[in-house]
């Protein structure tokens, strides 16, 4: 069953086109990776899906409903969770309170009802020891984990991960990938933007390549990595 369907989504900021007629769909339980050079419009695509910015043209359907004009808050409530590329913790709140916000508002339930659920997510994401520390005091790795934990606390059906492995060491990255894999195995659909390709390819079923706001290709990770075009615009820079 199709969970998310984008149809001809376009967005420009003045003369700069950041999304150009983007069409693709994600099935329930799928894990889709998104790659593309810097400035390809990857984070913008997430902002369009979550409603942080509105599309100029095209439509977005989630769970069969048209959500193109729906507010970010409502999209979160209907089951779209996200992490931010640059972690956006509530700095003066504690780590646990950060999750309480996500649990209580993202699921529209009482604080007490979601407290133990939030605690379990903190255990799973390795943040339990920091539960009562202000989020502003966390290290980069911990902030990335908090992004993931907070998104999970909203009980998303679709989880959007924006460069969650960027800037981490090899070991830190491996732990995070394990957590994401476990979440995906529980049935959460994942769309993951990542530059750390080996991490990404170990989880996702399909890879979507974005370039100047356009979809350059969509297919099995191996096929995408072997495509001449993709190699030129993306990997070519590294060769």
């Amino acid at each position: 069953m199709t969970l998310l369907q984008l149809d001809g989504i376009s967005k420009s900021f003045g003369a700069l086109t950041v999304a150009d007629d983007i069409t693709f769909s994600v099935s329930e339980g799928e894990a889709l990776g998104i790659i593309g050079p810097n400035g390809a419009g990857k984070s913008t695509l997430f902002n369009l899906i979550t409603g942080t910015i509105g599309a100029d043209k095209g439509s977005i359907r989630f769970l069969g409903e048209d959500v193109t004009r729906v507010s970010p808050m409502q999209r979160c409530l209907s089951g779209i969770g996200r992490t931010f590329q640059i972690p956006q913790p509530f700095e003066k709140l504690t780590v646990f309170e950060n999750l309480l916000v996500a649990g209580a508002f993202g699921q529209q339930r009482g604080e007490r009802e979601v407290a133990s659920e939030c605690a379990e997510i903190l255990v799973e994401t390795g943040l339990i020891a920091e539960a009562n520390k202000p989020a502003g005091s966390l290290s980069l790795l911990q902030r990335k984990r908090l992004e993931l934990a907070r998104a999970l606390a909203t009980k998303p059906k679709l989880l959007l991960l924006d460069e969650i492995a960027g800037g981490l060491t090899e070991g830190e990255c491996a732990v995070l990938v394990e957590t994401i894999r476990a979440v995906h195995r529980r049935g959460v659909t994942v769309i993951w933007i990542e530059h750390v390709l080996h991490a990404l390819n170990s989880v996702v079923d399909h890879l979507l390549v974005l370039h100047f706001g356009r979809v350059l290709g969509l297919g099995a990770p191996q096929d995408m990595m072997n495509s001449q075009e993709v190699r030129e615009i993306y990997l070519g820079m590294e060769v």
Partner: peptide
């Protein structure tokens, strides 16, 4: 209350609060 928690979240980071379902 829950509303107070949401208010503190909005104060700290309104964009993130909205993305988590808070009606800022």
């Amino acid at each position: 209350t829950r509303q107070g928690l949401g208010l503190a979240a909005v104060r700290d980071n309104e964009t993130a609060a909205r993305a988590l379902g808070v009606n800022a």
